[in-house]
Nucleic acid binder design. Structure first.
Lengths: 211, 211, 211, 211
DNA sequence: AATGAATGAGAATTCATTCAT
DNA sequence: TATGAATGAATTCTCATTCAT
């Protein structure tokens, strides 16, 4: 469909990956067929294999490109969001929600296909997630450090997992609340987590036995 | 393997589902083959089709049984955890983490297979998640109500999504920290979220412009 | 085409192999398609894969069955052909030529497909040939021994290669002389080789310098 | 790899055929890919097609060149080996074994690819073999004639087939005895066959009933 | 209640081959 | 002379599913 004739390789590759991201997002890895992707890309199957090697290679290419984009957006925002850790975390989360809002398909491909796929693919997904978790954990740790609390690496890691999981899940909430802006979502999440973390750092502790 | 001859239907069905949960968890829906499930269950394929109708039917049966178990554990704990919403939430989360710790396969089947599957399956997964989200949102709302805050349904729903997502993600953290007990994880999560929520309800608000 | 319904596995396997030998003989390994074999066997492709695993597995099965038959005929004749080595060699060669005359396809499959195929296949072909060569070399060695000549293992091996190669090639000659019986061919070959060998053993030696 | 730019046609053709002989020898006709040949030749595929028309055309060109070389060596030696047929036969066989020892790849291409190929290719192989067989049969006939025996064309043809087949097979024996010179192999073969033939011509006849 | 035999439909992948430049 | 881009046509193989007993 896209199909102008005689397109240079790099450009064609991007076209193919563009289409593949959509198809993988709509159908999932297994249900997607290379046939359909080739047809939608307006080329023949052998081109897909010539340029991307295999169905798995194609999926990996999609994954890598989208993961790079997402991680770059996230880390870029974290780097430029200000001096204070909380401001940087806020900026990074905002970048994340904005990315998801804008690139629904990319997010679906990145999010819901980890298991049941090959080692290489699972590794690529895990790596992207790990990069984000590490970034978040670093910011959280910086926040903790400012407060002189005894909490450490493991705690920061725990919070990072919770935060990233919450963000993941909130992408669904966003999908069912199209009127909510990424900014609003980010602010709510920061309020919920950061303030809570702050109080805990100050020694306020909750426990079932307290009551 | 299990294969006594002449086993009554109900019992056979459970045997089949037991095996299927393991295989689906290990391989994922598509990579799992009915052949393998039948063989591991010690029966022939036609029996699987006679009792469960189709591969999708089989997966749905797995999904329903495990979702029911999880939701039941969750709601049961929420019902008996005490009077205060926070105690009930705590009990429910604890039940969740304990379930995941004990039934890894069930959780994998429920957790990582949402997309790329049929309508019916996606619906079943969504329904289970919805039940949990509703329960959580209810508790959160009750907690909010106690405080006389102006926050409402939508806010409770937001918190519920964040909390459930955090819990999802923390199952990974647990997997890489086998020494951590479900109790400890639950307590940390409650500390982080509930305290934060409480402060927010009391009017403490965070915002990037604050700095 | 052969296709009665509901045929027991062993019987079907033999039917498939029967057809496959013909098709492989006519087309060669690569040009033969599993599709064609299945169709001629009157069954569907999945049956071929269910019973024989792969195209290579199917070819190996053909090879093994035909090689076993040929080697058995050859060795059986060598065992029952009489006491003297030359009589046993004669009987074995006769069995060989008779086999080739009667099972043209089997011979083609065994003969002209050694290279360019997989390790496993090449190994199976080589093994059959090695068995025949060893048998022949043994008989030749026995003949040599009777004469008290100084020739040894290596010479016997040389003669065996020459003899087996000659026999291979004479199958072509037979194909273009349909009136010639296996008996006649065998007799001629024995005359040519055995008598010659005898003279050499008796000390008559030929050399280009002789003239 | 060879790739100077702007190479004249004849030279390029020979480069391509050089590479193709190696690849066909290593992989066999079907497993060899035009892609690989083009790449090793350091040119693009369209050049191969421009000069050699098709994969089959390329293979035929290889076959013809190598067959011509072999037949020329064989016939050249037969023509210059001396007056007596046996000397000429000896010279020719020597040329053959020397050729095979020196041009392994050429021999593999000529020898082990007859069946499963197209009509045209099979015909070319058959033609080369026929030329050699005719030459040998002629020499044998000359040898017979000298003796005044009643044997005739058919017998000479029989001996030629046996001899050529023996020689074919002995190339394998040579491969596993790298210390043996072509001269030695030739001498042994002549001893075995020519002397035997001579005795037969003189009336000595072997038969199983003799014992 | 149970199964061995059987298949329709489609999946990924590979080539020899050609077009446009 | 030379090639990067492109494809039609197979081919092997898999799998959920059913029939006949």
């Amino acid at each position: 469909m896209t199909g102008r004739r005689r397109v240079p390789r790099r450009e064609r590759e991007q076209q193919i990956i563009d289409v593949a991201v959509q198809v993988f997002a709509k159908r999932g890895y297994h249900a997607a067929s290379v046939d359909e992707i080739a047809e939608l890309a307006g080329i023949s199957k052998p081109m897909v294999y010539l340029y991307l090697d295999s169905k798995e290679g194609l999926f990996l290419a999609c994954l890598r490109r989208e993961a790079d984009r997402l991680v770059a957006a996230f880390q870029g925002a974290a780097a430029t969001g200000g001096a204070a850790p909380e401001l940087r975390l806020h900026a990074a989360l905002l970048a994340f929600f904005a990315f998801v809002a804008e690139h629904r398909d990319s997010w679906v491909v990145l999010h819901r296909q980890a298991s049941e796929l090959s080692e290489a693919i699972a590794a690529a997904v895990a790596e992207a997630r790990r990069a984000v978790l590490a970034e978040v954990a670093g910011l959280v740790l910086a926040g903790i450090a400012e407060s002189g609390s005894p909490l450490g690496d493991e705690d920061a890691d725990f919070v990072a997992h919770a935060l990233v999981g919450a963000a993941d899940s909130l992408t669904d909430w966003m999908a069912s609340h199209p009127d909510q802006s990424p900014e609003g979502v980010t602010l709510r999440l920061m309020n919920m987590v950061w303030v809570g973390m702050g109080r805990v750092l100050e020694g306020e502790v909750w426990g079932p036995e307290r009551k």
